[in-house]
Simulated scan of single mutants.
Amino acid sequence: MRNFIDALNSRVLLTDGDLKPTLREAAIDLKRATFGNDDCLAALNISRPDLVTAAHKDFLEAGADVIRTHTKEASIDALAKFDMQDEVFIINHLAAEAACLAVDSLPGGDRRRFVLGVADQSGASGTDNELRYGAYIQVQGLVSGGVDALTFKPVADLEQARAQLASARQALLELGSSVPLLLDYSEELDFTDDTVGDLVDGVCYVENGDTIKAGFPVHQVGQKILVHGGRSPQETSRLDTALRKKAADGYRPVTRPNVSPREAIVPVSSWNDYSAVANN
């Protein structure tokens, strides 16, 4: 049974795109569904998780291998703008459940699909204890909701970033979770993944879909490659087709030479489900 790191080490994987356009266009009273804060789309994880699940399913049906939880703007700092900071755990937990439900409700076909929990803590501020708590509570919510892996974007300052990542790791330890913690690396970070390598299981580097090449190489040891799925399911479908054409076996370009032409793919989504199967 392969896990997310194995898959990411073996193949170029295609993510979903941005859920916000779909959620904004839904036929609902958006202000009411977001508790009077129509700019706080993360609140839909509480009031309308069915809409979030449906938006995820659109991208899965378009060919995405990885769907990301609707939590990019669900950190304590982001929610505090709408006086919803006390809801950070439940919003992240329900977002993870909504994403896992989308994966579990569709047949895998020839794709092994995953739910990637998104923790964007790059805009966090406050004392060291506040930074640690923000990281801790968001990770607890995502993992308890069933994600397969976590991508964590810390602040730019190295020492503060290490404190955040250490707290995220502590949350995993307390839950007894083996979910991999990936550094969401970007150019604005003023440190390299080597400086936090003792706290993370890998690096999540998202490439623009337009730049993907056949057999896209891993840039450096430990770095993982994801291709952004585009702004819509339609764009994601076109990228899925393009990637399949560039792969010798019609599936995905490999990032490791010893990948067999056609792996046995089992469509298991959430960490809880994976753990149950792996222990059989």
Rank of each mutant, 00 (worst) to 15 (best):
G222V: 09
V266P: 00
V227Q: 05
K213F: 02
T241S: 11
S270P: 04
D184N: 14
A163N: 09
Y136I: 03
P267S: 02
I212P: 01
S260H: 04
T255I: 08
V147T: 12
V143Y: 07
L150D: 09
F191D: 00
D128I: 12
R132G: 09
N272H: 15
P217Q: 06
R256K: 10
A156P: 12
T127R: 05
P180N: 03
V179L: 02
V266M: 10
F216M: 12
A264R: 13
P267L: 01
T195L: 15
D148K: 10
D194I: 13
S260Y: 02
A163R: 15
G176Q: 09
D273T: 15
A248G: 13
G176M: 07
Q140A: 11
G176D: 06
Y136P: 02
L150N: 11
D194L: 13
Q160A: 11
R231Y: 01
V203T: 10
L175Q: 15
A247E: 08
V254A: 04
F191K: 03
V203H: 02
A214L: 05
D273P: 04
V155E: 09
V227F: 02
C204Q: 06
Q164N: 14
G141A: 00
L142T: 11
L175K: 10
Y136M: 02
P261H: 03
Y251G: 00
A247M: 11
V203E: 02
C204H: 09
R162W: 14
P257K: 03
V200L: 04
G202F: 06
G126Y: 05
L131V: 02
V200F: 03
A149W: 08
L199A: 01
V196D: 08
D128V: 12
R162S: 14
Y185K: 12
V227I: 15
L173A: 14
N208K: 09
V227R: 03
G202S: 03
R238N: 12
G141N: 06
A156G: 15
L173N: 13
T241I: 12
S178K: 15
S144V: 05
E159W: 04
L182G: 03
L173F: 04
A264Q: 12
T211S: 09
T241C: 00
S269R: 08
S269E: 03
A242Y: 00
L226N: 01
S270F: 01
V200D: 00
P154E: 10
E174A: 10
